[in-house]
Amino acid sequence: MKRSWVVFATFALLLGASLTLLWGVIGLGPIKGWIPVATFATAILITLVMAALAAGGARRRRGGEGDQSAAPRAIPDFSFPTVLAGIAIAHMALGLELGAWLIMIGAGALAVAVGSVAIELRATRRAAVRAGGEESAT
């Protein structure tokens, strides 16, 4: 089995069978206990979205990107803006309890962090392009 979407589709199928059985037991009339059915159906939907994403990814790879699975990607060894983003989100969440001032501080820190990650991404991309250019020149 080369295609990973088959795994997701099989899982969705099994969940679907289980949901059908549940629905059969609790009855089809006015939906009794709609929450279990709704949560179950949402889980199936999420699985189907994952199957679609996996199938799309596989198609893109077949369409020219090739299998670069084992090759390392250009990425910095450390990402302190990401750490800042995590701390900022935690501050914002804690601000729900301690007050709007902490949410503001968290939001400010998050904005700085997102900006820094964007700079980091741009620098990484440029470095990768440069490395590619040097490689082709040699």
Binding site: S79, T82, A85, G86, I89
Partner: peptide, 17 residues
């Protein structure tokens, strides 16, 4: 046999959360 994980920054963010 992968060289790294997909979305390493997200994984790092996860640790801090």
């Amino acid at each position: 046999g992968a060289a790294e994980i997909v979305w390493p920054r997200l994984a790092l963010l996860g640790y801090w959360l």
